[in-house]
């Protein structure tokens, strides 16, 4: 019984070697392309990029390996929740969200047992259900190229955790005023900046409705709305920055 199996294997290897010799590596390229389409599979950067060095900034150290794991060794996943720019994470995410094409998180990320992680990095960003992951993906696309505030933040490398401090944001999560004011505050200064010259008491940041949430007007992942206009239809007010 063993003999025919051995023989078969042998023939297969030979045939494969011949094919390989004739196609000069195209088989591997083919294999990589097919892999790239499969969900939840971490694939080589080379399936899209000819050379890794082409996509690195100038003066970047040479990189060995061909997956995101090569980057992780130096660029450790930034788990901090500080309201600060994250240039590396921001750049690499933005670069992989092509205009009109969407994104595929699973090229670099892992999602097993509802845990959302990064390929060969040993870190987990937290629990995330499949639909929430899809939601976050769409928000990332908005963040990279929309006309909303999220894209305004993207331009200065502000990512999710800079606003959503606690954990992976889920549908319906909001951002407290204190968080916004870390960068945009203190409130008194903001009020001074936004004071209209013609009608000083039409200051949107000094509402007669009291201490209202920033998010009443400023929506990050959809178009912002001037709440004042709900009653004061004749006010000329616009929200800069999406």
């Amino acid at each position: 019984m063993k003999k025919p199996l051995l023989l078969f294997s042998f023939i297969f290897v030979i045939l494969f070697a011949i094919t390989l010799a004739f196609t000069k590596g195209d088989v591997f390229a083919q294999a990589k392309k097919q892999k790239a389409k499969a969900p939840s599979k971490n694939v080589s950067c080379l399936s899209c990029h000819d050379k890794i060095s082409n996509v690195l900034p100038k003066n970047h150290k040479p990189v060995t390996g061909d997956t995101i794991a090569s980057c992780n060794t130096c660029h450790r996943p930034d788990m901090s929740i500080k309201a600060e720019p994250k240039p590396y994470a921001s750049t690499i995410h933005r670069a992989h969200i092509k205009e009109g094409k969407g994104a595929d998180c699973m090229i670099c990320h892992t999602h097993a047992n509802n845990r959302f992680g990064l390929y060969k990095s040993g870190v987990s960003f937290g629990r995330l259900k499949k639909d929430e992951l899809e939601n976050i993906k769409n928000i990332f696309i908005s963040w990279a190229q929309s006309k909303n505030i999220d894209a305004t933040h993207s331009k200065v490398d502000i990512m999710c955790s800079s606003c959503h401090d606690k954990k992976l944001p889920l549908t319906g999560d909001t951002v407290e005023n204190d968080r916004c004011l870390i960068c945009h505050g203190p409130l008194e200064d903001l009020q001074k900046r936004s004071e209209p010259k013609d009608f000083p008491d039409r200051n949107p940041h000094k509402s007669h409705l009291g201490d209202i949430a920033c998010t009443v007007c400023h929506h990050s992942h959809k178009a912002s709305t001037v709440y004042c206009l709900g009653c004061h239809g004749n006010f000329k007010m616009k929200i800069p920055g999406g």
């Binding site: 007669h208 409705l209 009291g210 209202i212 949430a213 998010t215 009443v216 709440y227 009653c231």
Partner: peptide, 10 residues
């Protein structure tokens, strides 16, 4: 509403 007070506050 996203703010409290409805008609009362105005």
């Amino acid at each position: 509403m996203p703010t409290y007070g409805g008609n009362s506050i105005i």
